[in-house]
Amino acid sequence: MFMFTHDCTACDRTQLIFPSMITGATRTDAGTQVTFECWCGAPQTAIRGGATRDDRDMVAA
């Protein structure tokens, strides 16, 4: 399960963000940009993780 904490820019609280709150994810050079809705209802964006590995071709087994 992918959970993380986030400091909300709207309510100024540190909240635990659950997968059900995530509305989108995009891979960037800086890491994965995650968009989600805080517990207070404010839309938020966070960069999670860094690009630490080379991209590899995926193969279905």
Rank of each mutant, 00 (worst) to 15 (best):
D7R: 15
T9L: 06
I22T: 05
T45Q: 14
G50P: 00
D57M: 13
R27F: 09
T35V: 03
P43T: 06
C11H: 05
R27T: 09
V34A: 01
D55F: 02
C11A: 04
T45H: 08
G41Q: 09
F4Y: 11
T23E: 12
P43Y: 09
T9F: 02
A51L: 13
H6N: 14
P43R: 07
V59T: 09
G50E: 15
A46T: 14
T23K: 11
T26S: 15
M3Y: 15
C8V: 05
G49C: 13
T28F: 01
A46W: 09
G49P: 03
P19E: 09
F18H: 02
R27M: 11
A30G: 03
M1C: 08
C40S: 01
T5C: 10
M1E: 14
A10R: 07
A10K: 04
M21D: 11
T23L: 06
T5H: 13
T26M: 13
D12N: 07
T23S: 14
Q15T: 08
E37M: 08
T45V: 13
L16Q: 04
F18C: 01
A10T: 07
T52V: 03
F4N: 06
Q33D: 04
P43K: 04
T45L: 13
G24K: 06
G50V: 09
I47N: 09
A51D: 14
D29A: 14
D57E: 14
D54M: 13
I17V: 15
A60L: 09
T35D: 12
I22F: 02
Q44A: 15
T14H: 00
R48Y: 11
A30P: 00
T52H: 08
R13C: 01
F36M: 06
D29C: 00
A25P: 01
T14D: 00
A60I: 11
A46N: 12
F36L: 07
T14G: 00
A30Q: 14
M21Q: 15
D12M: 02
I47H: 05
F36Q: 02
F4R: 08
E37G: 05
F4L: 12
P19L: 10
A60E: 10
R27V: 13
V34R: 05
Q44V: 09
R56F: 04
Q33F: 02
